[in-house]
C-alpha cells in the first residue's frame, strides 16, 4: 500500500525542483540573450571609442543597456524561488 504522506512529499519536492530548474533557465537564457545583444553593441562601442575617446561614456552606457534583459531574468528567478 502506498504511503500518502510519502507521495505528497515527493510531489512537493518535485515542484521545488522544477521551480529551481525554471529559475536556472530564466537566468541562464536571458544571460545568453544579453551576451548576444551586447556583442554587436560592444564591438561598435570599442570601434567608436578607438576613433574618438569622448565617446567612451556614451558607448559604455549603450553597451550595458541589454543588461536589463538579464535583470528581468534574475527577477523572475527570485520570484520563482521565494
Amino acid at each position: 500500500m502506498v504511503d500518502v504522506a510519502t507521495t505528497l512529499e515527493m510531489v512537493q519536492a518535485s515542484q521545488a525542483g522544477m521551480s529551481a530548474v525554471g529559475a536556472g533557465l530564466a537566468v541562464g537564457l536571458t544571460g545568453v540573450g544579453t551576451g548576444l545583444a551586447e556583442m554587436g553593441i560592444g564591438a561598435a562601442a570599442v570601434g567608436a571609442t578607438a576613433e574618438n575617446r569622448d565617446m567612451f561614456g556614451l558607448a559604455l552606457l549603450f553597451t550595458v543597456i541589454p543588461e536589463t534583459i538579464v535583470i528581468f531574468g534574475l527577477v523572475v528567478a527570485l520570484l520563482l524561488l521565494f
Binding site: G42, A43, V46, G47, A48, E51, N52
Partner: peptide
C-alpha cells in the same frame, strides 16, 4: 563582431 568594429571605426 569584427565587421561591426571595423565598419563603425570607418563611419566615425
Amino acid at each position: 563582431a569584427q565587421y561591426i568594429y571595423a565598419c563603425t571605426r570607418l563611419r566615425v
